[in-house]
Amino acid sequence: MSWHLQSDTIGAYATGRLGVASAGSVEAHLLECGMCRAKLAGLAQSEAPARRRHDDSLAVILDQIDRPQPTLLERFLTALGVSPGLAKLTAGAPRLRQSWLVGGLAVLAVAVLVAQVGPGPAGVVMFVVSAPVAPALGIAFSYGWGGDPAGEIAVTAPLPVLRLLLLRTVVVLLSWLPVAALLAVALPERGRVALLWFIPAIALTSLTVALASFVGTARAATAVTTTWLVLAATTVRGTRWTTASAWLEHSFLFRPIGQALLAVIALGALVVAIARRTSFEVRRSS
């Protein structure tokens, strides 16, 4: 071969900077010329480390772009000492999880409105009776109503199901209790009466977790909240001329003894849930 490719042409070919036509003619020459092939091979070898470094940095950048960023809730849980993996699982509950919060807030907002503009204490009573229901439903919704659709895969995974359920329960309570407490400030009644929902909320949540070990979260939440509403509706009583306190204390649920009993039930239910932790880890039916 009487002529050879110039070094910068070989360099441009090696790095893919030549157009299709020029690259075609370079390739035609390379097929015939051993000297230029050797020069190309040498060039490729000398550029390999630099290319590898370039590829590595690109991989790191792409990795950073691709990697999902932790959400605010994940960062909050991680700051509390929860492992990043468990935090992601807790925060990654089905999207339905927000619906219970919105629904609960709507009910409480109506109750506050009735308490402010309506006659008598019905709004306050409605607030105190309905505020404990939302977190119990929230537990069920945090897995999707009817349970986790990927539940069969979850029960055969090593991560204990109860650990995840309890963590989601804590998140549900942490989301609900401050919100309900803030709304309670808007009630015309202050002090003890406006906080009578607090212990029942903890008790209903705890009972739902315990009952879920027998029948699953959705049925447990339905049973516990329905029982609560029926009990409250049939025992709370009063007239528009009596106070909210009188309405509520007509029911044993809102007397000091009833509240103490609910606190004991809350603790007992938590003990039952932990004692039955293995029952969360197998299917309940065929």
Binding site: P68, G85, L86, K88, L89, A150, A154, A157, P158, L159
Partner: peptide, 10 residues
């Protein structure tokens, strides 16, 4: 990713 976390690939 969800299943990998359940598998405790942390």
């Amino acid at each position: 990713n969800h299943v990998a976390l359940l598998q405790e690939i942390n």
